[in-house]
Design a protein around this nucleic acid. Sequence first.
DNA 1: CTCTAAATGATAGACATTCTCATCCAAAAG
DNA 2: CTTTTGGATGAGAATGTCTATCATTTAGAG
Lengths: 152, 152
Amino acid sequence: MEARIEKVKQQLQAQGYKLTPQREATVRVLLENEEDHLSAEDVFMLVKDKAPEIGLATVYRTLELLTEMHVVEKMNFGDGVARYDLRTESNKHHHHHLICVKCGSMTEIMEDWLLPLEERLETEYRFTVLDHRLDFQGICAKCQPDNPPEQP
Amino acid sequence: MEARIEKVKQQLQAQGYKLTPQREATVRVLLENEEDHLSAEDVFMLVKDKAPEIGLATVYRTLELLTEMHVVEKMNFGDGVARYDLRTESNKHHHHHLICVKCGSMTEIMEDWLLPLEERLETEYRFTVLDHRLDFQGICAKCQPDNPPEQP
DNA sequence: CTCTAAATGATAGACATTCTCATCCAAAAG
DNA sequence: CTTTTGGATGAGAATGTCTATCATTTAGAG
């Protein structure tokens, strides 16, 4: 935990930014909720517990900054809210998402299935891939018809 | 053109909806701009030429309805605006997008590269894919370093 | 300590989208 | 033909997310 904070601090300082208490609190919240895809509002409320004086604008600014630094990944699932995830070593690229249209659950696939496609884009389209997003919408295992879910 | 309008009409009626003049005008605009990815606002302004009395809310409602009917595909490129495309026979699924981070251009790949992956999801994850989205962000052919783009 | 620039918090603003509600209209019922 | 009914509409208010503004605070340089 502290090591990762330290790493972020160094990344920021390398670009001339400071790890202010507000920024540190924000990063800590992200670290403590690594499994979730928090919205800016989510982050704001969680940070408020640690540092009640923080302002919403600062959270937005910090998340934007961390996105530029590639410390977090800014995602958009089409629900009108940007969501933020820490990037880890094993997670340089977006992972893929399985979004269930019945129960709304989201599963992540951590493998990168797109490398072959990216090579094809490079050769056939001369398009250099920097990032990608792959989301599937459908019906998850729990909600399959042969496996009735929790339905009132 | 008329045939496609007729088809939409039947789809709507099958679900108990009517093809009102406003809805028809909206569909016509989408048909006439099939190549573009129009935002709701874009559609609104184009429809206004045909039917100046239409309201923005109706356009939103219509696009939402057409999305539910799977007549159009609602997309989101992360720029804060939803965009809408007609679905055609050759286009049952989302196509893939190459979004250039330098010039902002967008290229579409009409082939479906994901069928093998979807089969894998079905068997390995018991996830039934209804739809998918695959966007790549990177540098397009025109903007490759060895091929300087239109830069002021 | 003083100065400067970055960082912050509060709030207003911009923007896309949705909600509300009075009205309209087409088709069904009488 | 008239009335009734319920979906559809238009206008504008309301919502929600995010950004801009600006006065104030803070941290570090000198």
